[in-house]
Design a protein around this nucleic acid. Structure first.
Lengths: 219, 219
DNA sequence: ATATATTTTTAGACTTGTCTAAATTTAAAA
DNA sequence: TTTTAAATTTAGACAAGTCTAAAAATATAT
């Protein structure tokens, strides 16, 4: 079994491998975990001893197969708990992160299997992120960033990239949620902002900061 | 906020205050927590510094008001999670303890309030133990031990004193559960065993070890 | 290509919670 | 009441995870 801390490191490394380059740096991990680079180095050595990461001094890390399995399992638990919190306990999507950060470390395969069944085997969490399967597969889809999408085509919101309270609350306020219909009406080179139309006809101007954090799919 | 370890100590001290004398000894705590007496001494000093226990060298401890409030809150969370596991995730009553031991330390008032509502404000856990209220009151009832009950009176099982797997599975096997009807037919002085009749007419002989761990109420 | 800045690692320290072994106190028995 | 036994505490050590400050390696800029 692995400690909360080890699980957190693996999860964050996995996350950074997806969003950044394949090779993850010490500082990047330190930022993500709100800790110091020296602490990260210490932990990377420990994880390397346990064959959970490939670590070479000054060269950054990658997860081993074993490390990835554990990371995906933590992500799976995190996202299943988020579904529970939103679907069953009526939490809002911007309120679930901190609690799920705790719940993801509960150790019981039976618990997570039964929770999965209770929730009816969801495939996405409340932010649209895919829930890894029990055997460690991460379902991928062909979403693109709204900022890369084209005008006059009907898309639907599939996922939110940045799960920060501020973005989620912004989207809430404008009634944009997972599966919302959205069409780009106009794009502005000056600041990469865009005007979009929602299914209720409302027109909205979104900054690049927003559109670069929302994934969409063809409707 | 308090650590898992501190919460566990407070919970165990509270428990021992109820079942044993008002004043709890170091060794008793050590046994309950599967740890060493010297570790307990260390922690008692720490808890005393934080005004959570009244501790005098060589004299044992009692909880302060503050300590009791925290202990009851941990018990509340433990028991609510047990209800969730049994009622919603179909766990058996002998399978919930270890998982609830982990879940009881999740820190979120909002979570526990909503869980309480989701479960419809239960007042007892799956073993019949009362769930402390949000403001730290432990509902008591007038149950007595089956071993102290009288013959030829119809009782119902209200609570199980010892939540060990072995007892719970024994009771399961004989279809004795919370709210089961039970009547003492005969008591034997020799070994304090008794013959009881269940509502389905089945006769059963129970050792004192069993009857001294089952609470009953007048029907 | 050399100087400067940034990143990463090391060394040593601290905290929390635990342990063993020895010393001390309290309780029980002869 | 004195001796023996049991319970409790102290002292010193250890592991996990973190930190600061300084040293070493790498990357950047002129």
């Amino acid at each position: 079994m692995f400690s909360h801390s080890e699980e957190n490191y693996l999860k964050v490394i996995h996350n950074l491998e997806l969003t950044n380059s394949k090779n993850v740096s010490t500082t990047l991990i330190a930022n993500e975990l709100q800790t110091k680079a020296s602490s990260v180095t210490d932990m990377l050595k420990k994880l390397a001893d346990k064959k959970l990461v490939n670590y070479e001094k000054y060269k950054g890390v990658t997860l081993t197969k074993q490390g990835e399995i554990i990371a995906l399992n933590v992500v799976r638990k995190h996202r299943l708990w988020e579904v529970f919190l939103v679907d069953k306990l009526n939490f809002n999507w911007d309120e679930v992160h901190e609690v799920a950060e705790q719940l993801e470390h509960i150790k019981s395969d039976q618990l997570i299997d039964r929770l999965d069944a209770f929730l009816n085997y969801p495939t996405k969490d409340p932010h649209g992120d895919p829930i890894p399967t029990k055997n460690g597969k991460m379902p991928l889809d062909n979403s693109i960033l709204l900022s890369d999408a084209h005008a006059d085509i009907v898309y639907e919101v599939s996922c939110v990239k940045d799960n920060s309270k501020s973005l989620l609350q912004f989207l809430d306020k404008h009634a944009i949620t997972i599966n919302s219909e959205i069409t780009i009406v106009d794009k502005f080179d000056f600041d990469d902002s865009m005007t979009v139309k929602l299914s209720n006809g409302i027109l909205l101007t979104l900054s690049n900061k927003v559109s670069a954090n929302v994934f969409v799919n063809l409707k």
